[in-house]
Each structure stands twice: as C-alpha cells, then as structure tokens.
C-alpha cells in the first residue's frame, strides 16, 4: 500500500483552540474516503490543513507522493464573487493554472478539453454565460468542471453535495467515481450518511479526534455515531494548555 497522506500527532485549530486534536494515521493512495462527523468535529479544518491553507498548531501532515501543486481543493460554499463579469468557460479554464500560470496561453487541444469538461458536468451551451446568472447547482457543476481541468492526484471536496438537487448530486458523484477509477485519491467531507454508505468504500469518523476509520459499514455504526456526538466538547474560553504528550 502506498501512503498518500500521513497525519502525525496532528493538531489543527484556530487561536490555539484545537478543532482537530492529536490525529494520527494514514490515507492510502487511490482511496475514496468520506470524512464524517457532527458539526464542529473538525472535518473542514482537516481539509484546510491538507490543502495547506491552515498551518498545524502541532504535529504534521506529510504528503509523501503528492506535489502540493497536484492538490485540488473545493471549499465548502466556495467564496466566489458572482458579480464579476466572467463567463463559465473562463472560470473552468482557471483549472489550467498549474500549467499556464500567469502568462501561458491555452492551446487548441486544451480549449477542446475545457469544452469536454463543461460537457461532462452537463453544462453544454453554458460556455459564454456569465457566472452571475447560474443557479446554485449549476455553479457547483461549473466548479467540478474546473476540478476536472486541474487534473490533480489528490482531490479534497468539502460538503460538495449540500443544497443541490438529486440529479446534480448523481451526476457529480459520477465524476467522483471516475476519479476513483483513475486511481486519484479523493477525500470528501459529507454529513449525508446514507450517501456515504452507498458510494464511499472507506470512512473516517471524526469528532476532533478519530472515533473510527476503515470500511464504511464498520465505521458508521450506531455506537460509533453516538460516541462521536458525545465527544464534541463545548468550546472553553479558559481551557488550559493541552498536557497530552506529543
């Protein structure tokens, strides 16, 4: 088994308060892993840490086989300025940044790839539509097309299926399955346990600390879920420094 991500005594948080606490473990290369847990369990924080936008308070995240430039990260409710006058094609083309950078042109081959990606997410004919005119589901489809263009080996999706109709969810799950078949490592934060049980072979159940991990059916048991809910302690303004040995 090749390791894609290794957590070593990882503590992530904000203003010294931990959101992910002393996490150890590994994610194997090519895994399709769901990250579940109650609100405030540190799921989004963990993805930020892996994507490199949040530095650990303690411990480390190692990506032995992944170039940081080969990570595609879709945050929860991506903070996109929908009033900016730009069309769907140009946003999807952003996914080529890794190759193009600030100056590189887009070849004819890449232009057709962008059209393919737009078509693959079911947005045929939307190429020249301004992003301000898209619905929530269409916007998410567009962002998945951008993910396709990023051609990343590690893909991090934070609640990508919330507030989206079932047809769109099914289409986007098809793309996730395709990435999995292409041996990419895919981590998806989701609170929809039925969806996770159906589509994700592996699950990490998080409640600041790892409650359980492994095959989804052995992780998402009533006992584990109950335990996860109990583990979420209240935020304590006057908490002492953590004394647990590193």
């Amino acid at each position: 088994m090749e390791v894609a991500i290794r957590f070593e005594d990882l503590t992530l948080g904000y203003d010294r308060h931990p959101a992910v606490h002393h996490l150890d473990g590994e994610v194997e290369s090519g895994a399709l892993l769901a990250i579940c847990g109650p609100n405030g369990a540190g799921k989004s924080t963990l993805l930020k840490g892996i994507a490199g936008t949040l530095a650990p308070l303690e411990g480390s995240i190692a990506l032995p086989r992944v170039n940081p430039r080969d990570i595609a990260y879709l945050p929860q409710a991506a903070d996109i300025d929908k009033t900016f006058p730009i069309n769907v094609f140009d946003v999807v083309a952003m996914g080529l940044w890794k190759r193009c950078g600030p100056f590189g042109g887009i070849s004819r081959n890449e232009t057709s790839k962008i059209r393919e990606a737009i078509s693959a997410v079911g947005l045929d004919g939307f190429e020249s539509r301004a992003i301000g005119t898209l619905s929530g589901g269409q916007l998410q489809r567009m962002l998945f097309a951008r993910l396709l263009m990023q051609n990343a080996t590690l893909i991090l999706l934070d609640e990508p299926f919330t507030a989206i109709d079932s047809k769109t969810v099914a289409d986007l799950l098809g793309l996730v399955a395709r990435w999995h078949a292409e041996q990419r490592t895919v981590l998806v934060v989701s609170h929809d346990l039925d969806l996770v049980r159906e589509y994700f072979p592996q699950t990490l159940l998080l409640a600041r600390e790892a409650i359980a991990r492994g095959k989804t059916e052995t992780v998402l048991t009533p006992e584990n879920l109950l335990k996860a809910r109990a583990m979420i302690e209240a935020f304590d303004r006057d908490a002492h420094a953590c004394a647990r040995a590193a």
């Binding site: 490199g52 900016f84 946003v91 952003m94 940044w97 951008r146």
Partner: peptide, 9 residues
C-alpha cells in the same frame, strides 16, 4: 473572483 482558489494553486 475566487481568492481561495488562487491561494490553493
């Protein structure tokens, strides 16, 4: 448009 995306790449 998307500062978060630029920061990620």
């Amino acid at each position: 448009i998307d500062a978060g995306f630029l920061a990620s790449v």
